[in-house]
Design a protein around this nucleic acid. Structure first.
Lengths: 208, 208, 208, 208
DNA sequence: AATGAATGAGAGTTCATTCAT
DNA sequence: CATGAATGAACTCTCATTCAT
């Protein structure tokens, strides 16, 4: 369930990866501008640098592109996040590092994040769960960190609180993406991060 | 800028309102199920109980329907919220009441909220600002309340903090809509509200 | 099972009949010339005298046109045949009349018959049985006549013989359509009929 | 006119024959299942065991495959028939043998026969005559046999009758192929042959 | 001689919008 | 005011054919 293979007529896996990367890049750009439904497969092919025929050598249906895009975005977010944090030794400081890293990633990938949020519901009943799964894994990262901190008595939260807060963290990162119009003129990214972190820690640290 | 008139060929304003209400009701139902793009104007007309020809007596383009829908949703949320709170005499208690009211509205209108979030970017460059304006007004409600509380020295927050927190409140309400899959099995609405309120107050109350 | 309704978006049944007749007429002409697969829906619409959009108001899929064509052809053959014969009072003479009528119909509708024979296998699994049923009904007409004659002791054939001969009659009529290249330069229709009838009667009359 | 060369880029004739045989075998199988138009060149190549590129080394256009298939089928029918009969010494008995052989061949090659009948009209104006010629040759076999028998006064038929009956024989063999649905549940092949032969002989033998 | 990735014309189908009734 | 038949631009997807390797 962790991956859903999108079949390709082309056998050479290297090439498949290359072409799909071109495709995804072009698609993200177009989806950002006009959304999934307003973007035509021909435009995607053109933006990717090949013909419509070639496009369909690498996917079966237009929806596959959306799936690949969502998949790629999450993978990238995931990867960047994992790189930034050390899951083995969790401290309050490393939690803060993780938050900083997460907010930075969300800033860098603003457009991609918006695309996913606005278009994922266009995925079919079959593909959607795979994308939601990815999203869940993101929440999971924070759940794990918080759980460890609780175990080590650095925080005092029950299971349900951990989950709620983790969701909240993830959502607050997304907020930076889809509320730029309301936030960007007030805060720089750095200020926003600092403020958010302070609020989050206020929420979780035991009141003394 | 507060309203954008959608022109109608029909002059009788009462009738226009009636037909548009039918239309909006049908459209929301369909948009919930299949999204804006997958819903056809024919389907909307049918669901509304009149013919496609009649539909086009009351709007110019399909997008007008989306605008009317978004407009109606915000109006309803707004109205319910205003009804629940007393903006004249703000206390920490009435802030809490407002939060409770807000979360309840977001719960009742889950589907509508999702529709707006996922489809509003399908609005044209001209219509979008009007919808964003509505959204801003929602944030405004909380900004005002918080500002008053600050003025009355019940809270100690600067202007930017007020805005950030107001955005956060609004987003957290929306979170209940578009994260049901992750939250509903953990919390009842009441528990969720209680938890959220505690966290919000923790965030804003001065540490003693 | 006797009819398979092809759904139409247009409600007015008279209009549906009229438009479909135009459509069928155009389609038969084109199918004759280039076959079902080589004929485009656009060509059919044009030949029928309306736009591609209108075409699709009266059918759901291209295949529906083929079904309507096959259906119409059989109906016409059937009708002409029923008109020519009196099923109540069967004599050897009226059997001969029926044969003459049948061969005439097959001559008049040569092209249509060819279309059906060469294209019916393009029908879907669902539609094909309905067309085969029609064909069977044609065979049935002769089975009934022969059966009556046997009952009245005018002929001496068992059940299986009756069926085989009926099939043979039907096939021989079709032969005139799809073997014109080999037969037309030898026989006029009248000669062909006369010869065929003589052969058929030789085959079924008891040897004296 | 007896053969129409389909040009090949490959010079080695042995190889050409081998590859085309593979191709024909695969194509017949696929055409049986889904018809000429629904079968793609890719599928044919795959079924034949080589790549699409290789396929086009041995033909110029998809239609060539259909021509080769029709050609091959007739060749096979022809060959089997010639093997079964002795054209030099024709008697009423050997005519019967020929009929038996012919019906057997038609039974063995049912699917192939259907393919030819339903797809040959997809051949181009240039290729069709070559295929019809083959068909004519089949009729010719019976014309020759009957003519000899007439010459030897074993039968009394004029030229036109001979031709009609020959056509009829050929058609009746085909009938066994494309009317299985109506005949197979009534007759075994052996019964069918016996019945048909009796009818044919009744038709041609002088009434005593 | 064999491969298979690339191509793009062209097919079927949909659907927002119009307009005569 | 209401209707719904008519329109055709535009979309997704297919597949015969080519050609560099």
């Amino acid at each position: 369930m962790n991956k859903r293979e999108v079949p390709s007529l082309v056998k050479d896996e290297k090439l498949v990866k290359k072409r799909r990367d071109q495709m995804i890049k072009g698609a993200v750009k177009l989806f950002k501008e006009k959304g999934f439904h307003r973007t035509t497969t021909r435009e995607i092919a053109k933006e990717a640098g090949f013909s419509i025929g070639t496009l369909y050598e690498y996917i079966r249906k237009k929806e596959d592109i959306l799936y690949l895009v969502c998949d790629a975005i999450y993978d990238e977010v995931h990867e960047k996040l994992e790189k930034a944090i050390d899951r083995d030794k969790v401290t309050l400081e490393s939690l803060e590092d993780a938050l900083v890293a997460y907010f930075h990633v969300m800033d860098e990938m603003q457009d991609e994040v918006m695309v996913m949020y606005q278009e994922s519901k266009s995925l079919s009943k079959e593909a959607l769960p795979y994308v939601l799964k990815k999203e869940e894994e993101m929440v999971e990262i924070f759940i794990e960190m918080l759980s460890q901190l609780v175990q080590e008595k650095q925080l005092d939260l029950d299971e349900k609180e951990i989950q709620l807060i983790s969701h909240q963290i993830v959502v607050q990162g997304q907020m930076w993406s889809f509320r730029r119009w309301g936030l960007k003129h007030l805060y720089t990214l750095e200020e926003f991060i600092e403020k958010q972190n302070r609020l989050i820690f206020k929420g979780i640290l035991p009141e003394q």
